[in-house]
Amino acid sequence: MTKYGTKSGMASTSESTTPSPTPQIMSDASPLSITCHKLNGKNFLPWSQSVFMYICGRGKEEFLTGSASQPEFTDPNYKKWKAENNQVMAWLINSMIPEIGENFLLYPSASEIWDAARESYSCSDNTAELFAIESAVHDLRQEDSTVTEYFSTLTRNWQTIDLTETHDWKCSKDEKLFRSFIENKRVFKFLMGLNNNFDDVRGRILSTNPLPNLRAAFSVVRQEESRRKVMLGSSPQSSDNSALVVQRQNNPSTTDVTAHQGFRQGQPPNNTKGKMIPGRPWCEFCKKPTHNIDSCWKIHGKPLDWKPARERRAHSAVSEQPPSTAAPFTRTIGCSPEVILPAYDAIFCHRNG
């Protein structure tokens, strides 16, 4: 008699012992595009860092360093090495733009591709690129950027400098002192590049003893920026404009003084331009105040002794009434028919009306 329980138990045992795919095998089947930083000849540093992190996460960094040497053809592990090596090669080539990736298609191993890319595109030995980075850091200011954007730009450039500059330290204490010195210099640079509206928080940080590190200084300034946004509800520039508007509202005479100064300089205020002002001279010819038709410059020209306003004494005003003995004019009535007829009509109406 068949014992189904036993068979069922045997079947379940055989199913439980069936090996399942390992996570490593599944990771090898991941997409070939392993980073958003495709090597284009100018971004070797972010490309190399992101690619190295990805390949290390897959446990295959020895194919980049060269420690996974090629076995003999007769070695049983040769087929496995070849498959993994080609997998890493595919990752590297597909992380480059086509114009660059095509140059590495015929390389036999992933370590050779890695070394060739570093020799061709690394800026560690490129003095001109390092000089450009140092210049960009030196000239960088916050200006219209937020504190976070300004700090992130500085940090990216400093990380590039740190990765390209290598030092062989004989003493670990000297290395620690040097890094502390560089940290303080970078705190100074960060604070110097801030806008003037952060003078108060900048002073508080500089008065702290010992000087906080770069991340702590950034945190203090960022919190101050957030506090101002919450309390003022706008940027410092707009708050300055609001203060100016309040000042004008509290001192309305400012606009009146400005209008009065413009009138004294021969330019009537905008609300009286082209209108007759009671008690003031009025020209019937040019329809403007401050003079009459007998002294209109459009008819008679400017006086011979007339000088520009900049040559007069400061704050001198043009006389509202023409002098009793006016200087000769530079233009005569009979100079042009276009001027004669309207001028005679205006003078006739003025004297007979």
Rank of each mutant, 00 (worst) to 15 (best):
L130S: 11
S152C: 09
L154D: 08
H167T: 15
N157Y: 11
E165F: 13
S122G: 08
L92T: 10
N94T: 11
P98C: 02
T155Q: 11
P98N: 01
Y121C: 02
W114L: 00
E165S: 13
A116S: 13
L177G: 13
F104V: 14
T155N: 08
S95N: 04
R156K: 11
P108A: 04
C123W: 07
D115C: 01
H167A: 15
A117F: 02
Y150F: 07
I97F: 01
L130K: 12
Y150N: 01
S122Q: 03
N126M: 01
P98Q: 02
S172I: 13
A136F: 03
K176T: 15
D174S: 12
E129K: 02
S152E: 14
S135W: 08
L177S: 15
P108H: 01
D162A: 13
S152G: 09
T146R: 00
E129F: 06
W114K: 00
F104M: 03
W91V: 10
P108L: 00
R118Q: 15
M96N: 03
S124M: 11
K173Q: 15
P108T: 09
I93A: 00
S135N: 13
W114I: 05
Q159F: 09
D125E: 13
I100A: 01
P98E: 06
S135H: 13
T164G: 12
L130G: 14
S124L: 04
Q142E: 13
